[in-house]
Simulated assay, not measured.
Amino acid sequence: MSYSTEERGNPNTLTYRLFFKNSEGKYISPFHDIPIYADEAQNIFHAVIEVPRWTNAKMEIATKDPLNPIKQDVKKGNLRYVANVFPHKGYIWNYGAIPQTWEDPGHKDDDTGCCGDNDPIDVCEIGSKVCARGEVIKVKVLGTLALIDEGETDWKVIVINVEDPEAKDLNNIEDVRRLKPGYLEATVDWFRRYKVPDGKPENQFAFNAEFKDKDFAIETIKSTHTFWKDLVSKTNDGGLNCTNTCVSDSPSCCSKEKAQAIVDATCPCGSADPLPSSVDKWYYFEKN
């Protein structure tokens, strides 16, 4: 199955949306309709890229909007951009999410002692290619980091595109440590400090900021898939929008025509606004 995207609204504005279509041309939800597995027997997962590497716009699957298009996060009425905290320029991986997963805010994790953050599980794709926003790739899992973000468990799964030239040599978290020295340490540093320019304290981690291995990460993903199954099967979705077009046993499954109407109700694609000059600013902090 292949996927395509359709832009609506004006890039770099509050109107911007990126909708998804399947190979049949039907609008779909990247949260609910793209299968979690690309190859279940080999534990190969799909990943939806929200933020290409080196960019700053905090784009994300809109979990509360019909069909869950990608849009830019907003805080106090303003579009959010991740600051450049020296030496990191924007996001240092292709950042995205695994579809059909959900970190349940009503479930306290036995290992972290914190509940989920109410989002699909996040991935940091570390391959050589800079992906496109909305690109759907097949990834293998290498390990995971347990970020505690404002008291919530926010897993960051380290993955690599199976089509990447380096994929054959990267099979577990220790391979990343050996073949990409400094990358895991930079990942911890990025997540620890990226909110500091906003006046917030450094983020904390479970497991003393140590990465858990591939097997642990895969089991974590599978548990979030179970939570998603419970979410999409209910009519009371806890504030999230479960509108989909392919999950036939879901009460929120809608017709092709209704999905078309959802997209038609948004603004047509227009010209992009310029990025604010503040996006290029650098921040410097001593590490605690």
Results as ranks from 00 to 15, higher is better:
Glu219Asp: 12
Lys195Val: 08
Val196Pro: 03
Asp213Arg: 00
Ser233Cys: 00
Thr224Lys: 08
Glu185His: 00
Glu219His: 13
Gly238Pro: 11
Lys200Cys: 04
Leu184Phe: 13
Ala217Cys: 11
Thr235Met: 06
Asp213Ala: 13
Gln204Arg: 15
Lys234Asp: 07
Ser233Thr: 02
Asn236Ser: 13
Tyr194Leu: 12
Lys212Trp: 02
Ala209His: 03
Val196His: 08
Phe227Gln: 05
Asn208Met: 15
Lys212Tyr: 13
Asp189Lys: 05
Glu185Met: 01
Lys214Thr: 14
Asn236Tyr: 10
Arg192Ala: 10
Asp230Met: 05
Trp190Cys: 03
Arg192Tyr: 08
Glu202Met: 11
Phe211Pro: 01
Lys212Thr: 11
Ala209Pro: 01
Thr224Gly: 06
Ser233Met: 11
Ile218Glu: 09
Ser223Asp: 00
His225Cys: 08
Asn236Gln: 13
Pro201Asn: 12
Tyr194Val: 06
Lys212His: 05
Ile221Asp: 04
Thr226Ile: 14
Pro197Lys: 08
Thr220Leu: 12
Lys195Ala: 01
Asp230Tyr: 00
Val188Gly: 09
Phe211Asn: 03
Trp190Pro: 08
Phe216Thr: 09
Tyr183Glu: 15
Lys214Gly: 03
Thr226Asn: 06
Phe211Ala: 09
Trp228Ser: 10
Trp228Gln: 10
Glu185Phe: 00
Val232Gln: 06
His225Met: 04
Lys234Leu: 07
Phe191Gln: 00
Trp190Phe: 15
Ser233Val: 00
Trp228Leu: 03
Phe205Cys: 10
Lys212Pro: 00
Glu202Pro: 08
Trp228Phe: 14
Ala186Ile: 11
Arg192Gly: 02
Glu210Phe: 03
Pro197Phe: 08
His225Glu: 11
Lys200His: 06
Asp230Ser: 04
Thr187His: 05
Val196Tyr: 01
Val188Cys: 08
Tyr183Arg: 14
Arg193Glu: 12
Asn203Asp: 14
Phe227Pro: 03
Glu202Arg: 11
Leu184Ile: 14
Gly238Glu: 04
Pro197Ala: 13
Gly238Tyr: 02
Asp237Lys: 04
Glu219Val: 02
Phe207Glu: 07
Asp198Ala: 12
Tyr194Trp: 12
Ile218Asp: 02
Ile221Lys: 07
Asp189Asn: 14
Glu219Pro: 05
Lys222His: 03
Asp198Arg: 07
Trp190Tyr: 15
Asp189Arg: 13
Asp189Tyr: 02
Asp230Gly: 07
Ala209Tyr: 03
Ala217Thr: 12
Glu185Asn: 14
Ile218Pro: 11
His225Ser: 15
Ala209Trp: 06
Trp228Arg: 04
Lys200Phe: 11
Thr220Glu: 10
Pro197Gly: 10
Lys222Gln: 15
Ala209Cys: 03
Phe216Trp: 09
Lys195Gln: 08
Ile218Arg: 02
Glu202Val: 14
Phe191Tyr: 10
Glu210Ala: 11
Glu210Cys: 09
Lys234Arg: 13
Lys222Met: 15
Ala217Leu: 12
Gly239Asn: 10
Asp237Leu: 09
Ala217Gly: 05
Ser233Asp: 10
Asn203Phe: 12
Pro201Asp: 15
Asn208Ala: 15
Phe211Gln: 02
